Amino acid sequence: MVVNIAVLASGRGTNLQSIINNVENGYIHDANIKAVISDVRDAHALERAKKYGISAVFIDPSEFSDKSEYEKELIKKLEEFNTDLVLLAGFMRILGNKFVRFYKHRILNIHPSLLPAFKGLRAQKQALDYGVKVSGCTVHYVTEDMDSGPIILQECVPVYEDDTEETLENRILQEEHEIYPEAVKLWVEGKV
């Protein structure tokens, strides 16, 4: 069976690119990225999708009366692509309970900290402010509680004395590009 993947992204799409590369080179086999959906009209992730012939869809949240209506449209669009697995790659919206329940055990996210530490936004700044010596990244299932789903993979990254938010972010991002495709491969192969 071939797994149909849809990626939700709001920004540059570097994790998306990593997933695309690993599908293209066969590391993640028996999977197709059917669509990239963004809540930001000019998200670079949409351009990345187009470059590879992947459907690039912008759904404008401002066109809906509330979050629930927006997510109904999101589900409708995902179902048009027969989505088996939803990947969050820098998608800067918190998904509602109905959406999460609809895709239970079929939504993965990558977060730039060793969860359960430093949930939410600016995790690298939180790590620096706290003074940790090790940070990292986590691939986890998305559940109804933010950044709290079961952990699939984690990778450690050292925190140096002279680190800035940007330098730490860049080092963590390199590891994200390694473990996210690995987690997707494990999911596709039924090993998680």
Rank of each mutant, 00 (worst) to 15 (best):
Y52L: 07
G26H: 04
E24Y: 04
N25A: 10
N32I: 00
Y52T: 00
R48G: 02
G53N: 12
G53Q: 11
V23E: 05
E47A: 12
Y52R: 04
D42V: 03
N25C: 12
V40Y: 09
E24V: 03
E24C: 00
N32C: 13
Y27A: 08
I37H: 06
K34A: 13
D39C: 15
L16R: 10
S18R: 06
D30I: 00
I54W: 01
Y52A: 09
K34Q: 12
N22M: 09
G53K: 07
D42F: 15
S55Y: 09
G26T: 02
R41E: 15
Y27C: 10
D42C: 03
A31N: 10
H44R: 13
R48Y: 15
K50D: 01
V23C: 02
I19M: 13
I19H: 07
A56F: 13
T14D: 03
N21C: 07
K50T: 03
V36M: 04
I28D: 14
I54P: 01
I19L: 14
E47R: 15
I28N: 12
I19P: 06
N22F: 10
Y52N: 10
S38I: 08
N21T: 08
A31E: 11
I37E: 10
N32S: 13
V36A: 02
K50I: 09
H29A: 08
S18M: 14
I54V: 02
N32P: 01
I33A: 11
A56V: 04
A56H: 05
T14P: 01
A31L: 11
H44A: 04
N15D: 11
L46M: 08
H44Q: 05
K34M: 12
G26Y: 09
I20S: 05
S18T: 13
A45L: 06
A49Q: 09
I19R: 02
R48E: 12
A49V: 06
V40A: 11
Y52S: 00
A49W: 08
A56R: 02
E24R: 00
D39E: 15
K51Q: 02
A35M: 03
T14W: 02
N21Q: 15
I28M: 12
T14K: 07
V36P: 02
R48W: 09
V40M: 04
A45N: 07
A49N: 04
V36C: 07
I20T: 12
H44C: 07
K34G: 10
S18F: 08
G26D: 14
V23Y: 04
A43V: 07
Q17K: 05
G53P: 09
K51L: 12
A31Q: 06
